[in-house]
Design a protein around this nucleic acid. Structure first.
Length: 646
RNA sequence: GCCGAUAUAGCUCAGUUGGUAGAGCAGCUGAUUUGUAAUCAGCCGGUCGGCGGUUCAAGUCCGUCUAUCGGCUCCA
């Protein structure tokens, strides 16, 4: 007999060799029907795998992320099996579960799959699922594994197996399909009731652009048809919040091929919104002791040779601008740091001057590859809310913490609650991508990890995501369809101060080297506004929105009163406009609702006589009658409340 | 840059097996003077993404380039 400890701490006795399925059944039949995988001590197992020793277990169902992961991973195998049957000779790369569903990378031997063929594959998957195919796990020696895939002629699996350690290789077989796989899997395919293959894309084998491009099929499956329908509706809804769509509808920004790819044009409403965001941050930065500076849009090529950026990015950048002087070259500024270093150097600095915090809304230009351009989130010309903090070593922690405070304050103010703090470190296997000494890297990485922990941030660590000159703490926020974007970023840099030979005189009257913190709480104005649009679906907070109200006169007779109201509210710094068209009130309301204007002020005979306004709130409806001062107070109180939340 | 799909009026779209373009909205003009999500009528607006090719004839078929979309790679 063995002891099985359940998550609530209770212990049950079972015969050795008991499986997850047996345990689930012994608890309840309902659980047995819904259970998908089991955690045995720290590993997640198949439900059919015998447990032979005492263990702590946890059963996973569809309601657990781990349960979904198992379900989708098994679905990926089902996809592969369908493809193997329908397209003999197809070779398989990897097929993992992802956050929402799964994919499989497949080499179709030159055949390119058309979207219409997906329906056929879906149907095959459903047919196979109904056969209630069991997932059979087998441990296999490396030699046998190699033999199997040599015979099958699948070079991708052979490559994977070659990287694995003998004795730790397992195969999973379901139906006619056998795959190299660590598992775990669901017991059988019968729970997979709804299948949707979402898209086809190219993906480099092993993520390396020098390798062959395989065909990646993305899909998602559910235990109920209803779940699938709801998911598809949710995807459609999310697309309605896309900043490219909303930005066009609300006339916030535009892109012109004639101006150039990835060079956004800010329209009046978008520009005004952006200005309010900039002023908001400027005010915060003033409180935190930042000095605002301005630097030119170009810089001498030597500036970037000194910084190391030219060597790293020079050939992939906008190419140098020549001048009439032979050999003289300037670069469009791809970042602000070198300019700020030169500001540091304009005079000798004392330890008493530090930290020096130089801030600039600096517009930079980077030649992103065409395939990477994306709305406002990935562009070639953008404005960073940049600042560089030049610190003494003993100031690093405190300064870093204060930057985190600014980022969190901004996120809080704008209701960005769903973000990830990502500690972006070096790729330990590819140190040549980075400059600077190991010692400095280790110091910087440790500082970031320590401060993030001290601030109580829930962090994830990503290797290989550091900048080439230093590690970062990145604040990642999702867009409407779940893609993650880096917004705020904080970076510790020991390298640029060395390259620019920055110095300060210490209390010991000796020269010392400062340390730089690069930081941008928004990241860039473009990307931040894009994510903000998607976050609120174009229904901006009152303090940011282009028009806070629109006056809707019932007829032309009330235009004079409308102007009076407009002027009154203007004196309270409340912005809006009048709809003077000779349309019926229903039409004016409809248009104002579509423009997502927060307050519609309806005025007619009654309102003019009583010097009041009838208020209709966007998305909510009639709020009743207000006097002008009461409405002004309503607006200003609401804004104050938003901006003062800590 | 790579893989795949797409490209028709300012916007959203229709256009049968190839026979030289339509709708709604927006805009303009006029009528209407309106009470909480679309008043009516008329008008304007397109070398069907660019360039080549096949054909008596191309929005429609083929090639190529460009851009957009979904991914991959990249992101100082």
């Amino acid at each position: 007999m063995i002891n099985i400890t359940l998550p609530d701490g209770s212990i049950r006795n079972y015969e050795a060799g008991v499986t997850g399925n047996d345990i689930a059944l012994s608890i309840s039949e309902g659980l047995a029907r819904n259970v998908l995988s089991i955690k045995v001590n720290e590993e997640i197992w198949d439900l059919t795998r015998p447990i032979n020793t005492d263990a702590h277990i946890k059963l996973f169902t569809w309601n657990d992320d781990e349960g979904k992961a198992t379900f989708w991973h098994s679905s990926a195998h089902l996809l592969a099996e369908a493809v193997e049957i329908l397209y003999p000779g197809a070779k398989f790369g990897i097929g993992p579960n992802i956050e929402n569903g799964f994919y499989y990378d497949i080499d179709f031997n030159g055949h390119s799959i058309a979207e219409e063929e997906l329906a056929k594959i879906e149907q095959k998957m459903l047919d196979l699922a109904r056969e209630k195919q069991q997932f059979q796990r087998s441990e296999i020696s490396k030699t046998e594994a190699l033999q199997y895939f040599t015979k099958k002629g699948d070079e991708y699996k052979l490559e994977l197996i070659n990287d694995l350690e003998d004795g730790k290789i397992t195969f999973y077989k379901s139906g006619v399909f056998t795959d190299l796989c660590r598992g775990p899997h669901v017991s059988d395919t019968s729970n997979i009731k709804a299948v949707k293959l979402l898209s086809i894309a190219g993906a480099y084998w092993r993520g390396n652009e020098n390798n062959k491009m395989l065909t990646r099929i993305y899909g998602i499956t559910f235990p109920k048809q209803k779940d699938l329908s709801e998911y598809l509706v949710m995807l459609e809804e999310a697309k309605k919040r896309d900043h490219r769509k909303v930005g066009k509808e609300l006339e916030l920004f535009a892109l012109s091929q004639t101006v150039g790819l990835g060079l956004p044009l800010w329209l009046p409403k978008g520009a005004a919104l952006r200005e309010r965001l900039e002023n908001f941050l400027k005010k915060v930065q003033k409180e935190y002791g930042y000095d605002q500076v301005n630097t030119p849009h170009i810089g001498h090529k030597n500036l970037y040779i000194t910084s190391g950026h030219y060597e790293k990015y020079g050939k992939d950048s906008f190419q140098p601008i020549s001048t009439p002087v032979e050999g003289e070259e300037f670069l469009l500024k791809p970042m602000n740091c070198p300019h700020h270093c030169e500001i540091y150097k304009v005079k000798p600095r004392s330890y008493k001057d530090l930290p020096l915090r130089l801030a600039e809304f600096g517009t930079v230009y980077r030649y992103e590859q065409t395939g990477e351009l994306h709305g406002l989130t990935r562009v070639r010309g953008f404005t960073q809310d940049d600042a560089h903090l030049f610190c003494r070593p003993d100031q690093i922690e405190e300064e870093f913490e204060k930057v985190i405070d600014i980022v969190l304050y901004i996120f809080k103010t704008l209701d960005f609650n769903d973000f990830t703090a990502q500690v972006s470190l070096r790729d330990p296997n590819n140190k040549t991508k980075y400059i600077g000494t190991d010692e400095n890297w280790e110091r910087a990485e440790k500082a970031i990890i320590d401060v993030a922990a001290k601030k109580g941030l829930r962090t994830v660590v990503e290797l290989g995501e550091a900048a080439f000159y230093g590690p970062k703490l990145d604040f990642m926020v999702r867009d409407a369809i779940g893609r993650k974007w880096q917004l705020g970023t904080i970076q510790i840099d020991y390298n640029l101060p060395e390259r620019f030979e920055l110095e300060y005189t210490g209390s010991d009257n000796q020269k010392h080297r400062p340390i730089m913190i690069h930081r941008a709480p928004f990241g860039s104005m473009e990307r931040f506004v894009a994510v903000l649009i998607e976050h609120c679906g174009g229904n901006f907070p009152l303090w940011l929105t282009p028009e806070q109200f629109i006056l809707l006169p019932i007829s032309e007779k009330y235009h004079d009163y409308a102007k009076k109201v407009l002027n009154f509210l203007k004196n309270y710094d409340i912005r809006g406009l009048v709809d003077e068209r000779s349309e019926k009130i229903g039409k004016k309301i409809r248009d104002a609702e579509l423009k997502k204007i927060p307050y519609m002020l309806i005025i007619g005979e009654k309102e003019e006589a009583e010097e009041v306004i009838s208020i209709r709130k966007h998305g909510e409806g009639d709020l009743g009658t207000f006097t002008l001062p009461d409405f002004a107070k309503l607006i200003n109180d609401q804004i104050e409340q938003t901006l003062n939340k800590i």
